[in-house]
């Protein structure tokens, strides 16, 4: 069975959720985290994680900073901002509501 791509709009939620548990993380770690926790059911298209991160950053929900690595390169790591922490339950509730609605439609239609 082909692994499903993440539903439109849910990537932001997943990023916020992952960052609320473990932070700070760089883009690759966030992506691996989503894949890992979903039991490798969800697949994140590798390139799409960065525009999503930058969008969340501009919204002010996550903060980024550069850290140096041993090999002299730098990693950009992200963590939730205060606004993001407040945003997370809102997004979670919205998702729960939507998915419950979808579930209902599937059951009753």
């Amino acid at each position: 069975m082909a692994k499903p791509d993440i539903l439109q709009g849910s990537l932001d939620l997943l990023i916020l959720k992952i960052l609320s548990r473990r932070a700070p993380l760089h883009g690759y770690a966030i992506m691996s985290g989503i894949v890992e926790i979903s039991g490798e059911v969800l697949r994140v298209e590798e390139g799409s994680i960065y525009p999503a991160l930058h969008r969340l950053e501009e919204e002010g929900w996550i903060k980024a900073q550069w850290i140096s690595k041993e090999n002299g390169r730098r990693s950009r790591v992200y963590q939730l901002s205060a606004a993001g922490r407040k945003r997370l339950p809102v997004e979670e509730n919205r998702w729960t509501a939507v998915s419950a609605a979808i579930h209902q439609v599937l059951k009753l239609a």
Binding site: G27, Y28, S32, R73
Partner: peptide
């Protein structure tokens, strides 16, 4: 942004 993408590849190779 380029630097961040390069870091992504490094991490992929590292895993």
């Amino acid at each position: 942004i380029d630097e961040e993408l390069a870091d992504h590849l490094d991490n992929a190779v590292a895993t």
